[in-house]
Measured scan of single mutants.
Amino acid sequence: KITVTFNGEEKARRYYKKMQKHNLKVEIRVENNQWVVHVE
């Protein structure tokens, strides 16, 4: 499981979509004013 933190929504969403293309289970959320993407 990987957790990647971004300081911008745009970058986070781009990464999220990229990971989805690989058929990975991805989850995006905001934690402590940071955009966090969890990849299983």
Rank of each mutant, 00 (worst) to 15 (best):
E27T: 13
K17P: 01
T3C: 05
E27F: 09
N32H: 08
F6V: 01
K1G: 14
N32F: 06
V37P: 00
N32L: 06
V4I: 12
V30D: 03
H22M: 15
I28Q: 00
H22A: 12
E9N: 03
V36L: 06
N7P: 08
E10S: 10
E27N: 07
K25M: 09
V36T: 07
V39M: 06
H22V: 06
V4A: 06
E31V: 12
V26H: 00
V36S: 04
V30K: 14
K1Q: 09
N33V: 03
K11W: 11
V30Y: 15
V36N: 02
N33F: 07
E40Y: 15
K17M: 13
Y16D: 01
N33G: 15
R29A: 12
K11V: 12
W35Q: 01
V26I: 06
E10K: 12
E10R: 10
R13D: 04
V30E: 12
H22N: 10
N7W: 10
K17I: 13
N7D: 15
E40T: 12
V26T: 04
M19Q: 03
M19K: 03
K17C: 07
N33E: 09
R29M: 12
T5G: 04
K25F: 08
K18N: 08
K18D: 09
R29S: 11
G8L: 14
Y16Q: 06
V36Y: 06
A12R: 03
M19E: 01
R14I: 12
V30I: 12
M19S: 03
K11N: 15
N7H: 09
V30R: 13
I28T: 00
Q34L: 14
I28H: 00
A12W: 03
N7R: 10
I2A: 05
R13A: 05
E31W: 06
E10A: 13
E9G: 04
Y15P: 01
R29Y: 14
V39Y: 05
Q34P: 00
E9L: 11
E31Q: 07
G8W: 09
H38V: 15
E31P: 01
Q34R: 12
H38Y: 15
E31R: 04
N7I: 08
Y15A: 02
R29E: 07
K1A: 11
E40Q: 11
A12K: 01
Q20G: 04
N33P: 01
V39Q: 02
V4W: 05
K21C: 07
I28S: 00
V39A: 03
I28K: 00
I28L: 11
G8I: 14
V26Q: 01
W35E: 00
K21E: 13
K1S: 13
V37W: 00
H38F: 11
V39S: 03
Q20D: 03
L24G: 04
Q34T: 10
H22L: 15
V39E: 00
N32W: 04
E9C: 07
K18Q: 13
A12E: 02
V30F: 15
Y15D: 02
E9I: 10
Y16E: 04
I28A: 01
H38G: 04
Y16R: 03
R14P: 02
K18R: 11
K18L: 15
R29K: 11
Y15G: 02
Q34S: 08
E40M: 13
E9Y: 14
A12Y: 05
T3W: 05
R29Q: 09
Q20V: 11
H22F: 11
T5L: 11
